[in-house]
Design a protein around this nucleic acid. Structure first.
Ligand SMILES: [Mn+2]
Ligand SMILES: [Mn+2]
Ligand SMILES: [Zn+2]
Ligand SMILES: [Zn+2]
Lengths: 144, 144
DNA sequence: AATGCTCTTGCGAATTATTTGCAATAAGAA
DNA sequence: TTCTTATTGCAAATAATTCGCAAGAGCATT
C-alpha cells in the first residue's frame, strides 16, 4: 500500500511548485478531495472530504487554497442560487450547468451553439467576452 | 406641484392592496425609487434613493419590501459577480445581462435563439426550465 | 373623526459565508 | 541540520442579509 498519488494530482503539484507554491499536506488533501469529487462541493464539503486524508485541515486553509487554485485557473468557482460557492477542478472542457430545483442535483451540459451566440451578441454590443455564466434551473419532466 | 404618482406606481399600489399588502409611505418610496431607476441598484442604493422621498426608510425595510416584491414577481433580483444583489422592476420583457468588467456597466440584451436553445437542452435532459441565469462578462472591444 | 386589530417599521442583534491578523509551524533551499 | 519565509489554525473581523421586538401606522369599522 504505497502513497502514490494520482497522476492528476502529481501534475498539479509540479505545476504549483514550479510557480513557487509550497506543497503542504493540507494542500494535497484539498487537491485530492477535489480530484475525487465528481460533484460540485462547497467549501465545507471540501473541508470534510480533505480531513479524511489530513485531519488538520482547517476551513480557513480550504478557502485560502481554493482562492489560489481559482486564481490559477485550476479550480472553477460556481455561485448557483441558494447559498455558498461550489467548486470543481477545471480539468474538463467548458460546460454549463442545469440545476434540479427539487433535488439540488447539478447536471453538466455543453452547447456550442449557445457559446457561439453569446460571442456574437457580445460582439454586436462592442464587447469581447472574458467570462460568462449560464445556469438553467429546472424540474424533472413528469409523464403524468 | 401635485403629489400625483406615476400610473405605474399607482397600478402596483392597487395590485398590492388587492392582495392585502398595506401601502405604507416607505413602500411607496421604495417602489418609486425602483420605478425611477434605469439601472440595477443594490439594496443600499435603493435605500439612498427612497430616502429622498421618505427619509425614514430603513435598510431592513428595503430588504423586507424587496423580498415581498420579488416573491410577487414585481421585482427581479440579480446576483452578478462581485458583491450584493441588484434589483430592477420586472415590468419589461425578459432579458439577460452583459456586464462590463471594467466599468461595472450593465447592458441588457435579448436572444430568442438562446432562449430556445436553453429550453431545447433542458428538454433533452428531461427537464422543464423554471428559471435561468445568463450573464456575459466582457471588455469593451478597442480598435487599437 | 375616533377606535382597534393587525401589519409594518426602525433598531440593533443574529446569521451565514468568507476573509484576515497573528503567533506558531513547517516547506524547501542551502 | 539550519535558516528563511510561506503557510497554518484559531479567533476575530467583514459584508450582506435576516430576525426579534416594542413602538408606530394602515385601514376597515363605527
Ligand atoms: Mn461543472
Ligand atoms: Mn435588467
Ligand atoms: Zn458556457
Ligand atoms: Zn434569458
Amino acid at each position: 500500500m504505497s502513497d502514490a498519488e494520482s497522476p492528476l494530482i502529481d501534475d498539479l503539484e509540479h505545476e504549483l511548485r514550479a510557480e513557487g507554491v509550497r506543497i503542504t499536506r493540507q494542500r494535497v488533501a484539498i487537491l485530492s478531495a477535489l480530484a475525487n469529487s465528481g460533484d460540485h462541493p462547497s467549501a465545507e464539503e471540501i473541508l470534510e472530504r480533505s480531513r479524511k486524508q489530513d485531519s488538520s485541515v482547517s476551513l480557513a486553509t480550504v478557502y485560502r487554497t481554493l482562492s489560489i487554485l481559482v486564481d490559477r485557473g485550476t479550480v472553477l468557482r460556481n455561485e448557483f442560487d441558494g447559498t455558498g460557492a461550489r467548486f470543481e477542478l477545471a480539468n474538463k472542457p467548458h460546460h454549463d450547468h442545469l440545476i434540479d430545483v427539487d433535488t439540488g442535483d447539478v447536471i453538466e451540459f455543453t452547447s456550442p451553439r449557445i457559446e457561439e451566440l453569446q460571442a456574437e451578441i457580445a460582439r454586436e454590443l462592442g464587447y469581447d467576452i472574458v467570462d460568462h455564466r449560464l445556469e438553467l434551473y429546472g424540474k424533472l419532466r413528469t409523464r403524468d
